[in-house]
């Protein structure tokens, strides 16, 4: 019982991070119908900016430092997201369907190498900053720990997801985003600037990925240039599981993938946890390609 609870806590923390990244995949797919395979690298850049910023702000009080790091990382990572769309995808809009996908894979490799060359191939550590936590329950010799950091990650994620849902559902800009997602030509005829809306989608997705990057830096205390590859693929799996194109689906899928991974690692084998996550991807694609909350693809005639 205690062991299960501990795995659930760990899984929820991990799932929050996946969920934040998955939103970027699902929104970009929703609006331009492509998988942005460079999104994992955007998240990795968010983590690297966090490491650099934590070093720079290490003299400040902890709360101020974390706020500044979040802000700093979101702004810079969003700028990367904007640039990637502008340079690698927009010129290919209206080209054949595979072109932006290939460009995305190229962008992903480019960004990995770019960070490796600029920051070096070795792991970058940050000192642990938020320590301590609660003992939730004790069973024999096993204690269930809920750290302050885990609480912070889950709470930040929930607040961001709620705020983001509110933004998409009620503001004029969010409405515009949904309109472009449903019919770009018609939105343009009504005077909506479609290109700017697509840019905005990339900026928002990158901003959320940056938060995930900051959180993961705090959680594991170490980053490397290869970090985005696996996390990106898992967040993509989460988006597919929840139903690609669906915002609540991405959040749900992220949390489920986190839980599945933690439970698998806890009860079977931690070496096989990635296999578990990607088996889910295969199973979903075979048996429920529209995902849990997605709409079935309707062929337009």
């Amino acid at each position: 019982m205690a062991y299960l609870l501990q795995q659930l806590i760990n899984g929820l923390t991990l799932g929050s991070i996946y969920g934040l990244i998955a939103i970027g995949y699902t929104m970009v797919y929703g609006i331009i119908g492509m998988i942005n395979f460079a999104h994992g690298e955007i998240y990795m850049i968010g983590a690297f900016v966090a490491v650099i910023a934590f070093t720079a702000f290490s003299n400040l009080p902890l709360v101020v430092a974390i706020m500044l790091v979040l802000l700093f990382s979101m702004v810079i990572t969003a700028a990367y997201g904007w640039t990637v769309e502008r340079v690698a995808y927009r010129p290919l809009r209206g080209s054949f369907r595979l072109a932006p996908l290939i460009s995305a894979i190229g962008m992903s490799i480019f960004l990995q190498n770019y960070v490796q060359l600029l920051q070096g191939a070795r792991n970058k550590p940050v000192p642990p900053m938020i320590q301590g936590g609660f003992t939730v329950m004790q069973e024999g010799t096993f204690t269930v720990q809920l750290s302050y950091l885990q609480i912070m990650i889950v709470v930040t994620t929930l607040v961001l997801m709620a705020g983001f849902t509110h933004f998409i559902n009620t503001t004029s800009l969010g409405r515009q985003q949904r309109a472009c997602e449903q019919d770009k030509t018609m939105a343009a005829l009504l005077g909506v600037n479609v290109d700017r809306t697509v840019s905005l989608t990339f900026v928002l997705g990158a901003g959320l990925a940056a938060v995930a990057g900051v959180m993961v830096t705090l959680y594991y205390g170490v980053v490397d240039f290869y970090l985005g590859f696996l996390a990106g693929l898992k967040a993509f799996t989460a988006a597919v599981l929840g139903g690609i194109g669906s915002l609540p689906g991405a959040m749900l899928g992220g949390i489920l993938i986190g839980l599945i991974e933690a439970l698998w690692a806890g009860y079977f084998s931690s070496e096989w946890k990635d296999v578990a996550a990607f088996s889910i991807l295969v199973l979903v694609l075979i048996f429920r390609p529209q995902g849990l909350l997605g709409r079935p693809e309707v062929e337009k005639v």
């Binding site: 004029s172 949904r178 449903q182 005077g191």
Partner: peptide, 20 residues
């Protein structure tokens, strides 16, 4: 060519987005 998954009111608000 409506926005099928937006409400009637939202469809009308998108058309006024420039001023909004």
């Amino acid at each position: 060519r409506l926005f099928p998954r937006m409400t009637v009111l939202e469809n009308l608000l998108v058309a006024q987005h420039t001023s909004l």
